[in-house]
Simulated scan of single mutants.
Amino acid sequence: MIDGSPPTTGHLHTYRTQGHLVLEFHGEIDVSAALEMAPALDLYTALPAIEAIIDLSHVEFFDCSGLRLLCRARRRILDHSGQLQLVCDHPLTLHILRVTGLFPGFAPVPSLAVALDRGAAGDIEEAG
Rank of each mutant, 00 (worst) to 15 (best):
M1Q: 14
G4C: 05
S5M: 15
P7Q: 04
T8D: 15
T8E: 15
T9H: 00
H11D: 04
H11Y: 11
H13D: 14
R16E: 15
L21Q: 06
L21G: 03
E24L: 08
E24A: 12
F25A: 06
F25K: 01
G27R: 01
E28V: 08
D30L: 03
S32H: 12
S32P: 06
A34E: 04
A38G: 10
L41T: 07
L41D: 08
L41F: 08
D42A: 12
Y44H: 15
P48Q: 07
A49H: 06
I50Y: 04
I50L: 09
I50Q: 09
I50H: 04
I54H: 00
I54C: 01
D55C: 03
D55I: 02
L56T: 01
S57P: 04
V59D: 00
V59G: 00
V59M: 00
E60P: 07
F62G: 00
D63Y: 05
L67E: 06
R68S: 15
L69R: 06
L69P: 09
R72P: 13
R72M: 14
R74H: 13
R74G: 11
D79K: 12
H80P: 10
G82H: 02
L84D: 06
Q85H: 09
H90V: 09
T93R: 04
L94D: 11
H95V: 08
H95A: 10
I96L: 15
T100W: 08
G101E: 07
F103T: 10
P104N: 09
G105P: 12
F106S: 08
P110I: 00
P110A: 05
P110K: 00
P110F: 00
P110M: 01
A113G: 09
V114W: 04
D117V: 04
G119C: 01
G119S: 02
D123F: 08
E126I: 11
A127N: 12
